[in-house]
Amino acid sequence: MTQVQNGASPAPAVHDSALRGWLGVGAVTGATFTVVTSEMLPVGLLTPISGTLRVSEGAAGLSLTATGLVAALSAPLITAALGRTDRRLVLGVLLAVLMFGNLGAAWSPNFGVMLGARVLVGIGIGGVWAIAASMAARLVPEKSVGPATALVYSGVAVASVIGVPAGTYIGALAGWRVAFVVAAGLASVVLIAIAALLPRLAVAQVVPLRDVLRLARRPQLRTALLVVAFLVTGHFAAYTYIRPLLEKVTGIGASTIGTLLLVYGIAGVLGNFGMGAVGVRGPRRTLITIGLPLAVTVLLIPALGGSLWLAVVLMVVWGLSYGGVSVTTQNWAFAAAPDAREAASALNAGVFNGAIALGALVGGRTADWFGVISAMWLGGVLVLVAMAIAAVGRSPELRR
């Protein structure tokens, strides 16, 4: 059996067949879909959550902030603490934690309980993101690592297509609490799939926490982490508050907003697969290519979103652009630390989720203080800063 270096390797683990390996990748994709759906549910439910729990929309956005912050802290810590534990078992436990977190959110009688439940969700998210991409790289042959990684990260985009809009629709039809119960049920189904389809995935070499953190000193990886920090913070400063913005600027209701989020998500799936292969060859070029339209779209939507059709066009461009971010930044992290893929993935996941938390926080404060439109402007500016860092920083440009 091929030995795994520093917790992960592009070499495949032992598996019965190529089909079984891809079925395992599919199960891991189900896990990423579930964690992103769970994390993003408040985006489409902010208005009813804030009304039921009697907090402002900006305060309700803290349910996303708390989740992202805990996920950011737990990703590198869980990776270091896992040791050689079978990653199949770990993934199953994390999905169980996610399930209980969603059930707690559905039951929450007040906002304090909601935040506590979202902490559990954050632990599940951080752990899954820390190990999911490197697991995919071990389930398939080396030549298939790129497509397998893109498939795993398609869970992010598909969650935008199905998960978040479905949560918005369910919230409109049956109440926001039912949306969280459905998310808990989804986690239980994926847990069963993980147990049935994944082989045992032991780790040959453990990476201590101090070594995980030292990876950030590598210039190419440090650039990637800075780009993720600014780009994702900017995106979520704006995207977390897209529902109140569309209600204010476009003047549409919950069902139409759900449709727009569906359009956004479909575009995101196309962006994920379209940029997956390109991002392997040139992560810097790919991020700049998708980041500039993303910044322009976020800046324009307050001015042009008054027209429903222009709002649709802008959401499509936004989805296409952001859909490629996750897989491209993960490929950048892998290329910057090919000898420590799981550790690099954990760092990337930590910064990514921390940026989600920070984006929801600063976007919420900005929306409460200056109005929801200002959150869009802030988001666009932060994405432009990320593009400047990507342009001047160190980057591994592969397979020219």
Rank of each mutant, 00 (worst) to 15 (best):
Val14Trp: 07
Trp22Gln: 03
Gly24Asp: 00
Gly24Lys: 05
Gly26Phe: 06
Ala31Phe: 09
Thr34Trp: 06
Val36Thr: 14
Ser38Ala: 15
Met40Cys: 13
Leu46Val: 09
Leu64Glu: 08
Thr67Pro: 01
Leu73Tyr: 02
Leu73Ile: 15
Thr85Phe: 09
Arg88Val: 13
Val90Met: 14
Gly92Tyr: 02
Gly92Phe: 03
Leu95Trp: 03
Met99Trp: 04
Val113Lys: 09
Ile123Lys: 01
Val128Asp: 02
Ala137Gly: 14
Ala150His: 08
Ala150Asn: 08
Tyr153Asp: 00
Ala159Val: 12
Val164Gly: 08
Val164His: 08
Pro165Phe: 11
Thr168His: 07
Tyr169Met: 13
Trp176Met: 07
Ala183Cys: 05
Ala183Met: 07
Leu186Met: 13
Val189Phe: 10
Val189Tyr: 03
Val190Gly: 08
Ile194Ser: 05
Pro199Asn: 11
Val203Glu: 09
Arg218Gln: 11
Thr223Gln: 05
Gly234Pro: 02
Thr240Arg: 01
Pro244Asp: 00
Leu246Gly: 03
Val249Ile: 12
Gly253Gln: 03
Leu262Pro: 01
Gly265Ile: 06
Gly276Ser: 13
Ala277Leu: 14
Val278Ile: 15
Gly279Phe: 10
Gly282Leu: 00
Arg284Ser: 12
Arg284Asp: 04
Gly291Ile: 10
Ala295Met: 03
Ala303Phe: 15
Leu304Phe: 14
Ser321Met: 11
Thr329Asp: 09
Ala344Gly: 08
Ala346Glu: 02
Phe352Gln: 05
Gly354Thr: 04
Ala367Val: 06
Asp368Val: 04
Asp368Ile: 01
Gly371Phe: 00
Ala375Trp: 00
Gly379Ala: 02
Met387Glu: 13
Ser395Trp: 03
Ser395Pro: 00
